[in-house]
């Protein structure tokens, strides 16, 4: 039962004002945090909350991700940090709408396309901001860490890997370095996003063959029962009908195939459309698309305990590791 999965953790995180000193052994994370607070001093309290109860092993792993991100960023870190700040401020405006109306401002993909996706001057800044948030926002960082450890770490030898919306390419990078992965494929709806991912993978030095297809996951998949692993992270909340995306992945997975899903609840953003109001609701939705949950973690917005986030309806990233349940769905 979904309600058994959510544990009400009420332990308040202890902010760590000396995070820069603690980050000293982790050169890439230190570079990033120091640059953020230099450009945006008011973000100090957030970073103190992000690096609460300093978790050395976790930050060591994130330092490796930060090293890759800095390679991708090259000499443009200040630009990325400025765009991260711009993005955070855009999220605050959405938060006002959400708190006043209890809905996301946008309802359709066409609206999101008009306001964000079809405007290169907006999209480029947004993508740069998202990359920084991958390292700085604790739910993003924790979800990525789960992908590496719990999902890729448990991959069976010879697995065929499929990712939806590969974006910055960091998930693909680690899949490409996982010996158990036999083949890597990714789908995206945007030709320009595909080009960006290819460029990022080249900068990161990924030499393995990565097949990236122009393919909309909410349509019927081009191939059925062709993959052992499917990844869909921070995509479902951007769709009008996220159920169709999961059913498509159900069809694309082989019997017993595993899936990594990451989606936030109560998380207003300039292009979020589909609102889940609790982790329980999201888990039920996931199960209804033909998957069993094997492992679930819920990461509250930086600075809040899970208990507070549940009571106050704050943003919570729901990370589910699931397995295809066979023979109870009509294939699309």
């Amino acid at each position: 039962m979904a309600s058994d999965i959510v544990q009400d953790d009420d332990q308040k995180p202890n902010p760590n004002a000396d995070y820069l000193a603690d980050l000293a052994p982790f050169a890439s994370l230190h570079t990033l945090a120091a640059r953020i607070v230099a450009i945006w001093p008011e973000h100090h309290a957030y970073l103190a909350a992000r690096f609460h109860d300093f978790d050395t092993a976790f930050e060591a792993r994130m330092d490796e991700v930060a090293r890759l991100a800095l390679i991708d960023i090259g000499g443009r870190l200040d630009l990325y940090v400025s765009d991260y700040r711009w993005m955070c401020e855009a999220f605050i405006a959405e938060e006002f709408h959400f708190r006043r109306n209890r809905t996301y401002r946008l309802k359709t993909f066409a609206e999101a396309e008009r306001e964000v996706y079809a405007r290169p001057e907006v999209m480029e800044r947004y993508v740069r901001g998202i990359l920084i948030s991958q390292l700085v926002w604790e739910p993003h960082a924790r979800a990525f860490d789960m992908f590496r450890n719990a999902f890729l770490g448990a991959a069976q030898a010879g697995s065929d890997y499929l990712e939806i919306g590969p974006g910055h390419g960091l998930f693909v990078y680690f899949a490409a370095h996982c010996r158990a992965i036999a083949s890597i494929e990714a789908w995206d709806v945007s030709q320009s996003s595909i080009a960006e991912t290819r460029n990022a993978l080249a900068r990161l030095g990924v030499t393995r063959d990565v097949r990236i297809e122009l393919c909309d996951v909410v349509q019927a998949p081009p191939r059925h029962e062709a993959f052992d692993l499917a990844v869909i992270s921070e995509v479902l909340e951007h769709l009008e009908q996220p159920d169709l995306a999961l059913r498509s992945l159900h069809a694309a997975l082989r019997p017993g195939g595993r899936i990594f899903v990451n989606a936030p609840v109560n998380s207003p953003a300039p292009d979020h459309i589909y609102l889940w109001q609790s982790p329980d609701e999201f888990v039920s939705f996931f199960e209804q698309q033909g998957f069993d949950v094997e492992y679930a973690r819920f990461f509250p917005v930086t600075g809040a305990s899970l208990g507070t986030a549940l009571r106050k309806r704050l943003s919570i990233s729901c990370v589910l590791l699931g397995r295809k349940r066979d023979a109870d769905l009509t294939e699309i």
Partner: peptide, 10 residues
């Protein structure tokens, strides 16, 4: 923080 400020204001 900035997100709590939104909730407080609303």
């Amino acid at each position: 923080d900035s997100l709590a400020h939104v909730r407080i204001v609303v």
